Amino acid sequence: MRIALFITCLNDALFPDAGKATVALLERLGVEVDFPMAQTCCGQMHYNTGYPADAAALAASFAAAFAGYEYVVAPSGSCAAMVRDIHPRIVPDASVPRVFELSEFLIDVLGVEDVGAYFPHKVTYHPTCHSLRLLNVGDRPLRLLRAVAGLELEELPGAQECCGFGGTFSLKNPDVSTAMGADKVANAVSTGAQYLVAADNSCLMHIGGLAQRSGAPIRTIHLAEVLAATRAA
Rank of each mutant, 00 (worst) to 15 (best):
D139G: 00
P157F: 08
C163W: 06
C162R: 05
A147D: 07
E104M: 09
T128S: 14
F165D: 06
V137Y: 10
G116W: 09
L156R: 07
D139T: 11
L135H: 10
V115A: 14
E154G: 00
T124C: 06
L156H: 06
E155Q: 03
N136D: 07
L145D: 05
F119Y: 07
A147C: 08
G116M: 08
N136F: 11
C163A: 02
G164C: 00
L151S: 09
R143D: 04
Y118W: 13
V123P: 08
R146K: 14
P127H: 02
Y118Q: 03
L110Y: 15
E155V: 04
E152N: 04
D139M: 00
P141Y: 13
H126E: 04
L132W: 10
K122L: 01
P127W: 01
D114R: 15
D108L: 09
H130N: 12
P127V: 04
A159M: 00
A149D: 14
G150P: 07
G138R: 09
H126N: 11
L106M: 13
S103N: 14
D139W: 00
G116R: 11
L132D: 13
F105N: 10
G164V: 01
N136G: 02
G158Y: 06
R143M: 04
Y125F: 11
K122T: 14
E161A: 02
S103Q: 11
D139R: 05
K122R: 12
T124E: 03
Q160N: 13
R133G: 05
